[in-house]
Amino acid sequence: MSRVTEDEVAKAVMAILKASTTGRATIQELVREIPNHLALSEEDLKQSETRPNEAIWEQQVRNITSHKASPGNAIYEGWLVAIPGGLALPGK
């Protein structure tokens, strides 16, 4: 099984936010919920080399905000919005 992509993580985030009453969530809330939406491989669960207290897939959640200026990114494309400490659907 291969690693999940940043796009797959972003789509899981969007699904979680669409199912929520507010359309907003903190990074911590998303990290708790994403394993219920994605099949994470052993590779995904390995410790990140650049963020020692996180698994690689958790880093990908934060990368949605970090890579917001890159075409194809969920924020760049207008599918998500960065909010203090988390992510939201546009207009939420």
Rank of each mutant, 00 (worst) to 15 (best):
S70N: 15
S48A: 13
R24Y: 12
T5Y: 06
D44M: 06
D7N: 13
D7K: 13
M14I: 14
E42F: 03
I27T: 12
I75H: 08
S41L: 00
E8N: 00
W57V: 04
A74C: 07
R32W: 10
A12T: 02
M1A: 15
M14P: 00
T5P: 04
I64A: 06
A12W: 03
Q59P: 03
A74H: 12
H37I: 07
A69Q: 15
A19C: 05
S20W: 09
N63W: 11
A39Y: 01
E49T: 11
I16W: 07
R3N: 05
S20L: 12
E6N: 07
A10L: 10
Q28W: 09
P52W: 07
Q28K: 13
D44W: 06
P35R: 05
N53P: 04
L30K: 06
A55S: 12
V13L: 02
P71I: 10
I64C: 04
E42V: 09
N53K: 09
N36L: 11
H37E: 10
E77C: 05
E43V: 08
S70E: 15
L30F: 01
S2Q: 13
R62G: 14
A19T: 03
V4W: 02
S48E: 06
G23H: 13
E77D: 15
I75Y: 01
M1K: 14
R62T: 14
S48M: 09
S70C: 12
G23N: 11
A12E: 06
L45Q: 13
E49V: 10
V31T: 01
H67K: 14
A15K: 15
I27W: 10
P71N: 12
I27E: 03
R3T: 10
N53Q: 14
R51H: 02
V61N: 01
N63S: 15
P71R: 13
H67I: 00
H37P: 08
N53V: 01
E29F: 02
W57Y: 06
N53M: 11
T26Q: 05
S20M: 13
L45Y: 01
H37N: 12
Q28P: 01
E54F: 04
T50K: 07
S2F: 04
K18F: 01
Q59H: 12
R62S: 14
K18Y: 08
T65G: 14
R3C: 05
E54H: 09
S70I: 15
I16H: 08
T21H: 07
